[in-house]
Write a protein that binds this DNA or RNA. Structure first.
Lengths: 244, 244
DNA sequence: GTCTATAGGTGGATAGAC
DNA sequence: GTCTATCCACCTATAGAC
């Protein structure tokens, strides 16, 4: 990875095209032939550069997720440095986690909405190698954020926080992955929901509107009154509904 | 569909097995051969009974969704009759919509968690025929519930309600579809999150716990303060944050 | 309704020349 | 690094006997 003068853009072209086609059609329904012909490279090039179709998919994600993971950890580092030992506010944590991702959607050079949609869709793919891959990619970052939320919400049972983190991930993933489902389900064009018309790229506008809408929703869900518990409740709290 | 004395359970056996395999592997990765051999029927039986693999998938959903749609509409009818013209409470509407679905997860004869997971995963599949199918299946019910929410939250801009309905659908779908992602992402077993051990089927317990956890989260999100608006805000409200 | 047999096609991967 | 040619496993769907 050092001295090829033309680390020929073949590699990058394949990754760009694969990203788009995997998003449009899904992993299984996208053939190597479709990728290589759209990228105008030879069929054998994928196996030469990546080894297999599975490895190609992983590389499509790795090139974006490495950057995203760094950004998310840095955002948390920065907040914690500013707080000087005090717990963070939940809204700050959510902004660092979800805001960092959603800002990728506004920047085509980071993959834009194409990558975000692909990510949202692929997270629920059943294939074993995909689940294993994401587990490894996400483990460290999720763990850091989980601990930040535990500190930020000391009165909420940890199991409850974990559930809600999961709900938040789901709301975001579907909101991103299903921007076309949205139209269908709601009978509205995304343009109508986005507010005023804009001169920018529609995807960029969508990413911005999404962030504005999603963040209050997630925060409201995270801080909702706790559910009733049944027998002995969790260690730290009296059961009945209380706003956290 | 009337006089075959043995409307041989071949048909039902295929549907049951297809439901499970589509859930385990996804639509594209599940072959007719895998289905017919697991169901112990002949390879040609699927095409005889359903016509094609696509039609089989649609039928897998139709046999559950028809019932679900009826239940959801009846639940709303009943609430509206009780209210005698007054708007419903948001919590009632969510209970009717999401509670009805989640109760399917507790009843294996209605598909149980297998069907719920399949539904959650399939909603984001890119294949055109799937999107078209769901659009037709859901349109009527979603429209009724949308209008109920508009009435229940007259001070919230309609576009905002539509966004939040979408977020809620997403949170629920992922929460269901990704109960194994949950383990991986959070480092917990589902059992740990479910609270006490139980003698029931683990999936049934999970469905119950999920409902208890999810409903407060969704309600908190739906009723969260409105986001800031930029230029001219929506017609009905002053912009800055207000709890609805 | 069920079965066998097969048509007719596409998939991922690789060997080996250049 | 790129290309052609090819292997072969597997797919959906159907024709036609029983």
């Amino acid at each position: 990875m050092s001295d090829q003068k033309t680390t020929s853009d073949t590699r990058e072209r394949i990754l760009d095209v694969a990203e788009r086609l995997f998003m449009d059609n899904g992993y299984e329904a996208t053939s190597m032939r479709a990728i290589t012909s759209a990228a105008e490279v030879n069929l054998a090039a994928v196996n030469y550069h990546f080894g297999s179709k599975e490895a190609l998919l992983c590389e499509v994600f790795r090139r974006r997720l490495t950057w995203l993971n760094e950004q998310r950890l840095q955002a948390l580092d920065k907040l914690e440095a500013q707080a000087a030992g005090a717990p963070l506010k939940p809204s700050q944590i959510l902004e660092a986690f979800f805001g960092t991702l959603l800002r990728m959607g506004e920047d085509p050079s980071l993959g834009g909405m194409t990558f975000l949609r692909l990510l949202g869709r692929t997270l629920t793919e059943p294939a074993e190698f995909i689940r294993t891959f994401f587990a490894g990619e996400y483990a460290q970052v999720i763990d850091r954020y989980k601990r930040a939320l535990f500190r930020a919400l000391p009165d909420v049972p940890k199991a409850e926080i974990v559930w809600r983190l999961h709900f938040m991930l789901g709301a975001m993933s579907y909101a991103i992955a299903g921007t076309d489902v949205l139209q269908v389900v709601t009978g509205c064009e995304v343009g109508d929901l986005a507010g005023e018309a804009s001169c920018d790229d529609p995807d960029t506008v969508l990413a911005r509107r999404l962030a504005e809408r999603l963040m209050p929703f997630l925060l409201g869900g995270l801080r909702a009154p706790l559910p009733q518990f049944h027998e002995e409740a969790n260690k730290q709290k009296e059961p009945s509904s209380k706003t956290v």
